[in-house]
């Protein structure tokens, strides 16, 4: 959009890849123009799936005003500690399969109900710090969960990763056209900042009634596939609404086994394995 309000924001040029990301093989962003389509759920499931495959996974949450990942991974009330090499991400128990650690603003809040009322510059500074100061160590995959929109957080992360050669973005949508309309904007954003699109995932695609097994398309269906075809990007698959996932998340603190294990046994796991296989099959070059 140009005109009265000027051109698009300038993407600030960065000097080179951030040293803190030097030992990370692949960086994947999870994006969507629309809120509440399941970016954090997809990030969580992608992380659990990769972890179950035996990879070392890190997850960075740059949704600063609505961080959901601490709750997703059962890490509420945990804190980030400072070590000589930088901020230490909060580890998730995996019982020896792969490894999983998380950074989120949620860990920096005193009370879980506290709001973070920040304008753009402060959000930008926080994201810069998350990219520069976290000691991720060696990772196979770093997944970055984002807030909805194409604003401060997105411009900032694009700036910060400018020379860090991320693999690209997984774009999440729900099937209805109100959602795909916003997601189209996000795809255009990716083009503008030259971020490779790994593919589109359609989330909340149908609900299987637990009483009669009938599948109802609550938010209609097929929108994701149509979107992928229109923009000529890979379609990674659709994920149905499964209340069991929410239960899995909510019960993890009281369950006997770790979330990684219980997810590995759930019915959603094969669906996500399929999606992640499609991403991995693209064989994006490793960064190190």
């Amino acid at each position: 959009m140009s005109g009265e309000f000027g051109e698009e924001e300038q993407i600030e040029e960065q000097e080179g890849p951030a040293p803190s990301l030097a030992q990370i093989k692949h960086i994947i962003l999870i994006l969507s123009g629309k809120g509440g389509v399941g970016k954090s759920s997809v990030t969580t499931q992608a992380a659990l799936t990769l972890c179950n495959m035996g990879y070392k996974v890190g997850v960075l949450d740059i949704d600063l005003t609505g961080p959901s990942l601490p709750r997703m991974f059962g890490l509420e009330n945990r804190s980030i500690y400072q070590a000589a090499e930088g901020w230490l991400p909060v580890p998730v128990e995996t019982n020896g399969v792969g490894s999983l650690s998380v950074i989120s603003l949620g860990f920096l809040l005193g009370d879980r109900g506290n709001s973070v009322v920040w304008r753009g510059p402060k959000k930008t500074a926080m994201i810069k710090q998350f990219i520069k100061d976290v000691a991720w160590g060696q990772l196979d995959y770093l997944l970055i969960d984002t807030p909805p929109g194409t604003s401060d957080e997105h411009i900032s992360i694009a700036e910060q990763l400018r020379f860090s050669e991320p693999d690209g973005a997984i774009v999440v949508t729900t099937p209805q056209s109100v959602a795909t309309a916003d997601v189209k904007k996000e795809l255009n954003f990716c083009k503008k900042v030259a971020l490779h699109i790994l593919g589109v995932v359609e989330n909340m695609s149908g609900f299987i009634c637990p009483h009669c097994e009938e599948c109802t398309n609550i938010f209609s269906s097929g929108g994701g596939l149509k979107l992928a075809e229109e923009f000529n990007v890979p379609y990674l698959g659709n994920v149905p609404i499964d209340p069991k996932f929410v239960e899995l998340i909510e019960n993890q603190t009281t369950a006997d086994e770790s979330l990684v294990e219980s997810y590995g046994k759930s019915t959603l796991c094969p669906i996500f394995k399929d999606i992640m296989d499609k991403v991995l099959a693209q064989n994006r070059p490793a960064r190190c």
């Binding site: 959009m1 309000f5 000027g6 753009g120 959000k123 604003s151 309309a181 904007k185 255009n188 954003f189």
Partner: peptide, 20 residues
């Protein structure tokens, strides 16, 4: 109502959104 295309991305930082 003001976008050149229906799916144009509005890549604006906060300060510009405030003006609108």
């Amino acid at each position: 109502f003001m976008l050149p295309e229906d799916d144009s991305a509005v890549i604006w930082r906060g300060s510009k959104k405030n003006l609108l």
